[in-house]
Amino acid sequence: MQRNVGGYDRIVRGVLGIWLVVMAAAAYQDDERERAAIAGIAGLGLLQNVWMGFCGGNYLLGVDTTGDSCSAE
């Protein structure tokens, strides 16, 4: 897999991923298990994109954001 997530895209995905995981924990404590599962899966998916530097959706659409000016590498 070739990296296709970088720069500002990677930062935004990381922030949203962490936020969704926190929201999932809060929803789970409020006994909203379905909402917690959806938010948790979405958040972990975004964090996996950040960690691996690869997004299947970007690949299918031909989008590559690794050339952004805020690259973490």
Score class of each variant (00 low, 15 high):
R33F: 15
T66E: 09
I41K: 03
R13L: 02
Q2C: 00
S69L: 15
G6H: 08
G45T: 10
N49I: 00
V21Q: 06
Q2N: 09
W51G: 07
G40D: 01
N58G: 06
L16Q: 04
V50A: 07
A25L: 14
G40H: 06
A27C: 14
G40K: 09
G40A: 11
R33H: 15
D31H: 13
G6W: 07
E73S: 12
E34Y: 08
G67Q: 10
N58S: 03
W51D: 02
N58P: 00
A24G: 08
W51V: 07
E73D: 08
S69D: 13
M52F: 08
A37G: 08
Q29P: 01
M52E: 06
A24W: 04
G17A: 03
Y28K: 14
G6R: 05
F54S: 11
L16C: 11
V22E: 02
E32W: 14
R35M: 15
I38L: 15
L60V: 11
V5C: 01
D30C: 04
Y59G: 12
D31K: 12
V50T: 01
M52H: 08
I18Y: 00
L61A: 13
V5G: 00
G7P: 02
A26V: 14
V12M: 06
G17M: 06
M1H: 04
L20Q: 05
L16D: 01
I38R: 12
W19E: 10
D31F: 11
R10E: 13
A26R: 14
D64G: 09
R33Q: 14
A25W: 09
T65I: 05
Q2I: 04
W51L: 11
V15P: 03
Y8E: 00
Y8L: 09
T66V: 06
F54V: 14
G62V: 05
G6T: 07
V50E: 04
E32D: 14
G57H: 01
M1V: 05
T66D: 09
M1E: 00
M1P: 03
V63E: 10
A27K: 13
E73W: 04
A25R: 13
V63Q: 06
G43K: 04
W51R: 08
Y28A: 15
G40F: 06
F54C: 05
T65F: 11
E32R: 14
I11T: 11
N49W: 05
W51A: 14
M1R: 02
Y59Q: 12
Q29H: 12
V50D: 04
N58T: 02
D64R: 08
V21I: 15
A72S: 09
V12I: 13
D31M: 13
G57R: 11
G53S: 05
V50C: 11
G40I: 12
C55S: 13
S69F: 09
T66G: 07
D31C: 07
N58I: 01
A24R: 04
L16E: 04
E34T: 14
L16A: 12
M1G: 08
G56Y: 01
A39T: 09
G57Y: 07
R13N: 02
